[in-house]
Amino acid sequence: MQPVQDITDQQRAAIEWIVRLTPGSATEQDVAAFRHWCAQNPAHARAFVEMRRVWQAMSVAGGKIIAANAVPDNRAEPLPVHWLTRRAMLGGALAASAAGAGYFAFNPPLKLWPALPELTADYRTATGERRQITLASTSSIEMNTQTSIGLRANGPDGERIALLSGESLIQAKSRNLQVVAAAGTVSATNATFNIRRDGEKVTVTCLDGRVTVDCKAVVVHLANEDQVTYSDGGFSPALKIDASLVTSWREGYLVFEDKPLAQVIDEVNRYRRGRIIVANSQLSRRLVNGRFYLARLDEVVDKIKNAFGARVTTLPGGVLILS
């Protein structure tokens, strides 16, 4: 399965270029800088094309955000308004972009819709939804927002499921339960643990009992309030954590302590319909402390606006741009 990623640094930079290359204010120097950025990495051009497609899909609203965020530039004479539509200006950089409906089926831009593998899951929660399921072994799974779980054939070692995306709190009963997630497998009997998958990164937190995590032939044993993260590159060091912070979603709120705004927004986007995009690199690095209630997530934008002086522009479909 190809992972569904949150907004990347390349996508955020592409949005900044869309704002900067505003018809009527973009200069020759801007175009030269844009060409240089595309030439640095083919992924830059792909990100730009992807973000432009999102804007084009929003039609008139896309034009509104460009106009709202345009900064008058009197460094040089502006280019003609039709420059951005000329393929010659983009040169060969944009030719490297990934195209086609198949690509976006597995890689939704800005995670505006679920990826195809998630839609084929046996159990799935929508944005903001939670769901409780019970397996044949009576083990229970509390699924958080945007979570997809697939049932797998039981093996000699017990019951098996796959976490395709999202987060769940799992209470394993007397029969061994195995959870396959990305490159690893989590096993538990008579234990409670929280497991979260972000693309190919998986974080496991033991809440009660003992949990075993196996990734690429390396095994880590977790006790109460132990947490470990693994990915294709192996394990990160195990940590002792405050379990209440990990499971605060069950109580209806999120807690952040000195977290970059970009990370905070990525988390809020998991629970909120639409998408919040931070289109300013400096703003995305500002640190945030606070508790935000899931039932009142739109207050997050107001608090960011007041605390950091951010500009907020509203697009259809619940899309907000912070700049």
Rank of each mutant, 00 (worst) to 15 (best):
E257Q: 14
D122L: 11
Q146N: 13
A223M: 09
V204S: 09
Q10V: 04
E200V: 14
M58Y: 13
P117H: 12
S168E: 04
A153W: 05
Y271T: 08
V213I: 05
V54P: 00
T147Q: 07
R270D: 09
E251S: 12
H82E: 14
S231P: 01
W37N: 00
S148Q: 08
G199S: 11
F235T: 03
Y123S: 06
A238H: 04
W17L: 00
A98Y: 10
A115C: 13
G128T: 15
S97L: 01
A61G: 15
L119P: 00
V202G: 03
A162I: 12
Q10K: 15
A262K: 15
S59M: 05
A33V: 01
L163D: 03
N306V: 08
L164R: 12
L94W: 06
A33G: 03
R196G: 04
P316H: 08
A95M: 14
R53V: 01
N194C: 10
N190C: 00
I15P: 00
V288I: 15
P80N: 11
N176A: 15
A26I: 08
L169N: 07
L283T: 02
A96F: 08
A182G: 09
C215P: 02
A32E: 13
E200F: 14
A93N: 12
R53N: 14
E16D: 05
A262G: 09
G274Y: 03
V278K: 10
V60H: 07
D242C: 07
E118Y: 02
E50A: 07
A295E: 14
E257L: 06
H44L: 06
P23I: 09
K201C: 05
A310C: 06
R160A: 06
R52A: 04
R210D: 02
G150E: 03
L84W: 13
V301Q: 06
S148I: 12
I133G: 01
G150M: 06
G91A: 04
Q282P: 00
G128P: 03
I277E: 01
N190P: 00
W113H: 10
S139I: 01
D226Y: 13
R250I: 04
N280V: 01
P237Q: 13
A191E: 01
Q29G: 07
Q29H: 08
A153M: 12
L84S: 09
T8C: 01
R124N: 03
S168M: 11
A70Y: 02
E299F: 10
A67Y: 02
V49H: 08
Y230G: 01
S174H: 12
L21N: 01
P80W: 04
A99K: 15
V213Q: 07
D198L: 12
L90A: 07
G290V: 12
Q11D: 13
L110E: 02
R12A: 13
V255W: 11
G209S: 04
R52L: 03
I170G: 05
A98F: 07
A33C: 12
V268I: 15
H221G: 06
G100N: 14
V54R: 08
S244I: 08
K201V: 11
M51V: 14
F104A: 10
W113S: 10
N154C: 09
